[in-house]
Design a protein around this nucleic acid. Structure first.
Lengths: 271, 271
DNA sequence: GTTCCATGTCCAGTATTTTGGACAGAACGG
DNA sequence: CCGTTCTGTCCAAAATACTGGACATGGAAC
């Protein structure tokens, strides 16, 4: 009974997940999708029917998933409105507290001569976006609501440049074709894939990334990548943000130096 | 049911209450359990076999769930070690940023005469524990790694007293029988359910909660509950932490006053 | 060098969950 | 006041995912 399946698959072919539709545990995948929708919804709330429509999942299935998620504390329910649950704060915090890099990051910043008085952030590359993991705030006066966890297009910020610059150039090509239209936040934002790749080469030559009012007017940013710790460690980077008005070349030099030192410390498993 | 065999690890086994009979989407529930285990694991890492053993789930099922979780970015895999994924930071941050209370909390603290220079926290009650959602740090010198997301037994901290005190007394009885043995962190920690309930009554009469070195020696804490916004809003509370050595009655009065003002502001939907 | 125990992966049969539509309640507008 | 359009829930049939064991691999101990 030779099950004559379709053509013999090549022997050394990696079973790379190509179709997102097929998943080993669909319910889990869909649950994650539900969380994603809730997270990206402007109001942060949605009804069961909304979610079912948005995701193309039958209402009854959505109901089951939501009930399971609610039992787990991952979503919260108020009447007909579902929103993200408190457990996510625990889990997110657990992620951050478990990573030694974050602790070292705070300690290093507090002791560094220049960085101690600046705004320093650590972020990781996720596709063509960066996610801010933690922020050291040297100016106690200005305190914004936490931007931890925020996502930002890599082409728009210093860390993004630093992290993408470290990838292979062939990845640049697929991620940023010459004619790619990049998101724009200020008149100085990089607009095309071609321009971004030129900037990436400049970043490599410099040894650090520089962002000049490309995400926020009046603000400049320096960034360097963190050497990957383990074999498959996350692609981390650190950055300093400063006001352009008070930014001097002398500062720049010491900031870059300390950033590199910080990055080296974070990349060294022994701390 | 298989009796809980003595774990190889010296950790205390917690009775994981799973009701396999009534479970709308078992895969989701199990996936959440996986995340819980990873979050509560001291090292933050675990192998597939570890997770399967710990949760009593067949290896193959665990594999499927982990693969789905990894595809969703909820867990990260390095070789044979699984750990929490970056997406959780996004989701946790989304939860916090969506809640208007958090933003208002920071703004209010920064402008309050006394609180602006203190350590203020906002937390929510989750069963018999509180979860710290955000912290305003008025002393820029001392900066610890983020305690956001940490859990603490309600009987051990000021906010816990304030939040449980607001519940119905019949809930006290079921949660804290007279002979309940409560967790202890310092010699002054409340040890029995009976003593805790007496303290809860005192808290009600005072109109605010006071914690006197019950979680950390040398540290005192004041706390008040936030009036619930909506119908089924979360049970929020705010607290100030101070060093006992420099704590005066005059401070106490103004702190309580400002805390109550903060709580009222947070409870008022109009901000 | 070799054995052993560990890892995670794969597959086919079984028991499961998913599903689509009908149901009841609430909010809204005519 | 009733019709309409939402909300979420329920159930039995249908299709699915889960299970248990065998498999290939990698590392450590002997």
């Amino acid at each position: 009974m030779a099950p004559s399946k379709s053509a013999v698959t090549s022997e050394i072919e990696r079973p790379r997940d190509e179709s997102p539709s097929s998943s080993p545990a669909p319910a889990v995948t869909r649950a994650a999708a539900v969380l994603d929708v809730l997270a990206s919804s402007p109001s942060g709330r949605a009804t069961l029917s909304d979610l079912a429509r948005e995701l193309g999942i039958p209402k009854s299935s959505t109901s089951n998933i939501l009930q399971a998620l609610e039992d787990a504390g991952l979503v919260s329910r108020e009447g007909s409105d579902f929103s993200l649950g408190r457990k996510l704060v625990e889990l997110g915090a657990s992620y951050l507290n478990r990573r030694d890099e974050i602790r070292e990051f705070y300690q290093f910043c507090a002791q560094a001569p220049t960085l101690a008085h600046e705004t320093v952030r650590i972020a990781l590359l996720d596709g063509d976006h960066v996610i801010y993991l933690a922020r050291y705030e040297g100016h106690p006066a200005v305190r914004l609501t936490s931007t931890i966890g925020d996502k930002m297009a890599a082409s728009l910020c210093g860390v993004g440049k630093a992290l993408v610059a470290r990838l292979h150039e062939r990845d640049w090509e697929s991620m940023y074709p010459d004619d790619a239209e990049l998101p724009v936040l200020t008149p100085r934002s990089i607009r095309t894939g071609k321009a971004f790749k030129e900037e990436l080469r400049r970043t490599r030559e410099q040894g650090y990334a520089f962002e000049d009012e490309e995400s926020t007017l009046g603000v400049v940013c320096l960034a360097v990548p963190v050497p990957t710790r383990g074999a498959h460690g996350p692609n981390l980077g650190v950055s300093v943000t400063a006001l352009k008005a008070t930014f001097t070349e002398a500062q720049k030099a010491s900031m870059v130096a300390e950033l590199k030192e910080l990055a080296r410390a974070l990349g060294n498993p022994m701390g």
